[in-house]
Design a protein around this nucleic acid. Structure first.
Lengths: 230, 230
DNA sequence: CACTGACTGGAGGATTTTTTTCCACTTAGA
DNA sequence: TCTAAGTGGAAAAAAATCCTCCAGTCAGTG
């Protein structure tokens, strides 16, 4: 735990002992990370690395130098995304007047970040015991869990949904639609549909005894991940 | 138009002039079609053909013999899916007491059929002028459009949603979730989330002036498809 | 029930895609 | 001004996928 905190002192995902990157190199690293996020969302986390380096505007060698293999890159993308979403959920909690309003804002922000789309797979491909990842993730999950509970006890959020529902719906809505829709329009549509869903999440919308299906929590998801041999 | 009707006399997607397949061959064809549907949903319509033949329990040669190239297979899958969903929407319209109830039933059925997940892409890869496809599709779309209009004038369905919304949400919900969730559980979850969404679609759930984003129709989608060079 | 042409599987060569290394050249920054 | 850090891209190596071919099997007719 102490080790984990130390690790985060270095600038973002770098072990602190390593000599810092030259300014231009650091810049390239960031661009690669951003490009990787986009490409993973669009093509899945198995997308060709060259596509990523191309989109980042660097050579393929630069990518390999910074991230020795796909897993290193995947991990960095996941960590970055986790930090950003955790950040958003906290900000929403602190700045919105009600828990429900915070949830609404957070959900829309996650759609903007897009990376939620491939979260489950990214995490699947990272060593189970990665402490740094696990810590940031647990942090964010806890906040969201609290918001859901609070919104429910406020009487705004229907009691039969779980934070797992919220998370999974976000994954669904973040994924780009297949087909001819231009990217931007697809994203506006996602927000539109999120609004519809949110109206279905309000207490007033609930019909008694209606929801079937598994009421999942993130804990359930983790135990599911139990590392199939591959 | 007359030609098109003729074409449909033959047993399902076969041009009528061709000599009928031997019983075992016809069986294989059907299995390949079913397997292709599944694989397309799970891996996208560019999935390796060998995966399909394997899942169908036939050799790769059999697939190639029956469908000379990927496009022929894609077309057959799309046509089959289109016919099945069109069938479902009509059955729902005829058997349910209200338009809204029909929509609800139809939406759940589409999730079961799963193929909706890749519909837009399948259609994208088929020659624009394919009359048979276009006819079945238009047929189904019309029925759904009528249901939406009826449900709205009945006062059950909120007036600010379009049939395009319904279609696109179905695409979203049909797509398998990435990650470790077992397939079956993912599907139950989709139905659960569809229920939530449906509660958001009721007139009572609407908040005035709420929905942003593009209110798409299927007509819009078609014009979007205007065949980018590839 | 024997015969035959329709049908089959899968090996394997051709082709395409993706990974990964290497090195001559450039440049940030002391 | 000097140099170690950083770079791009060519190309060899590996992997994935396509697609054909043919020796052998079997459905269905006469």
């Amino acid at each position: 735990m102490f080790l984990h905190m130390l690790a985060r002192l270095g600038s973002m995902g770098q072990k602190p002992k390593e000599r810092p990157l030259r300014a231009d190199a650091r810049d390239n690293r960031r661009r690669i990370l951003a490009a990787a996020g986009e490409v993973f969302v669009e093509q899945g986390p198995g997308a060709p690395l060259e596509e990523i380096s191309k989109r980042a505007g660097t050579g393929i060698a630069t990518l390999y130098r910074r991230f020795p293999d796909r897993e290193a890159l995947t991990r960095a993308v996941a960590l970055d995304a986790l930090e950003r979403t955790t950040d958003e959920v906290k900000r929403a909690r602190d700045e919105e007047p009600t828990a429900f309003a915070a949830l609404v804002r957070y959900m829309h922000r996650v759609l903007d970040i897009r990376i939620g789309a491939v979260f489950p797979v990214l995490l699947e491909e990272i060593p189970f015991e990665d402490e740094e990842i696990a810590a940031v993730r647990a942090d964010g999950v806890t906040v969201m869990q609290d918001l859901v509970a609070k919104a429910q006890s406020d009487g705004d959020l229907r009691p039969d949904v779980t934070h797992g529902d919220v998370g999974m719906m976000l994954v669904r809505l973040s994924r780009p639609l297949p087909g001819p829709l231009p990217r931007e329009m697809g994203e506006e549509l996602a927000h539109r549909h999120l609004d519809l869903l949110i109206d279905g999440l309000r207490t007033a919308a609930a019909r008694p005894g209606e929801l079937g299906g598994p009421a999942l929590t993130f804990g359930d998801l983790d135990s599911m991940g139990d590392r199939q041999p591959r």
